[in-house]
């Protein structure tokens, strides 16, 4: 499963990406997890199965929900507590639960 993360400049989320990749490995999941900035989401949407937004860009949530819907994938904001704690496993769970 391919999980696309979006934050402001794409950097703060990279830390989370590392953690999520670890968690995915432990679960034996394969797929791509990567982070991009708000401006680039559109370019990557086609590749993704799930779109997750950092809480600091939640003002864009409504906008991206529409875009994601058009692309036929679920989109949500990362639970801020999990994001803050950089809890890769929990965010991964969140992504999995969205992709039924």
């Amino acid at each position: 499963m391919n999980i696309l993360l979006c934050c402001a400049a794409g950097m703060s989320t990279s830390l989370l990406v590392t953690k999520m990749e670890q968690a995915a490995k432990e679960k034996g999941l394969s797929g791509k997890i990567w982070a991009v900035s708000v401006d680039e989401v559109n370019k990557h949407l086609a590749e993704a199965d799930v779109l997750l937004l950092g809480p600091q860009v939640r003002y864009k949530l409504a906008h991206f929900k529409k875009e994601a819907e058009a692309a036929g994938i679920p989109c949500d904001m990362i639970n801020p507590i999990d994001y803050g704690m950089v809890n890769g496993a929990k965010v991964l769970d969140q992504a999995l639960s969205m992709k039924k």
Binding site: A9, G10, M11, S37, Q56, Y83
Partner: peptide
């Protein structure tokens, strides 16, 4: 709002570290 603040905080921490390491942001606005 508190939620966004958490995100913003993490973002800025990373920003400081990035700047200290003289790395540039991947995606430039």
């Amino acid at each position: 709002p508190e939620d966004a603040l958490i995100g913003l905080c993490l973002h800025m921490c990373c920003m400081v570290d990035r700047l200290q390491a003289n790395e540039t942001a991947v995606n430039t606005v």
